[in-house]
Design a protein around this nucleic acid. Structure first.
Lengths: 110, 110
DNA sequence: ACTATTAATCGTAATATTGCAATGAACTAA
DNA sequence: TTAGTTCATTGCAATATTACGATTAATAGT
């Protein structure tokens, strides 16, 4: 199949899964880390920084942009990318709530 | 290809990606949320709770167990699953650091 | 206009993921 | 032992993802 049955889950569950999925590839993790690290926005330096071909990086950037986590600005022939701060913060809120579910409630059973 | 070139990324980047990947499916998100919610540990109630077939749930549980996020105990004919608290906390630490990268540093560029 | 540069898109091959029917393994109860 | 229950595993079909060469589109410089 390879097809997630999203209709049987809540909006929140699907939202968490979508965000998590985009972090589920080390290249996208590396791209985001680099965008956080570099003071100015970066364009195709990412292709050199990360060792993947230009079309591959472009594809990963597209996915990140599609989820709203980064934004890109055309500057001449190059494109400048950076973190979309508001959306990142909103995403962080959702993911943090998921990660911080209460562990103290139940005694260990297994 | 369909094959992530993990060797060109850091251990941390790969670790984040692996954790994120397992959260990248709503069924696994739902399973974890249910394990957090239910006071006692759950076995095949998950099959009823979530609307997927038994082999499918079993496969998702296997992935969660493989990453160490849950543990399972055989109890007669049924198997009791619950969150692996120590590992969950360790994972949360890694993911939280990734999510909490500093946004205040750079001015918006785009 | 011509060329170079940069990045998106297209097309395609290789691999991974998802879902389930069928089966198997382990235990329980009679 | 036999039958029933529960869950894991196997095998397979459908779909998704990843990666990149080739091409295209847009801009800049000459």
């Amino acid at each position: 199949m390879g097809l997630a049955k999203t209709e049987m889950f809540t909006d929140l569950q699907n939202e968490i899964a979508l965000f998590a999925k985009v972090f589920g590839h080390p290249a996208r993790v590396a791209i985001l880390q680099h965008l956080f690290k570099i003071n100015s926005c970066v364009c195709g330096d990412l292709v050199n920084e990360i060792g993947l071909a230009q079309p591959t990086i472009s594809q990963h950037l597209k996915e990140l942009k599609h989820l709203g986590l980064i934004k890109g600005n055309v500057e001449g022939t190059s494109v400048c990318y950076c973190i979309h701060k508001e959306n990142w913060t909103a995403m962080k809120e959702v993911m943090t709530q998921f990660l911080n579910q209460d562990l103290t409630q139940n005694p260990d059973c297994c």
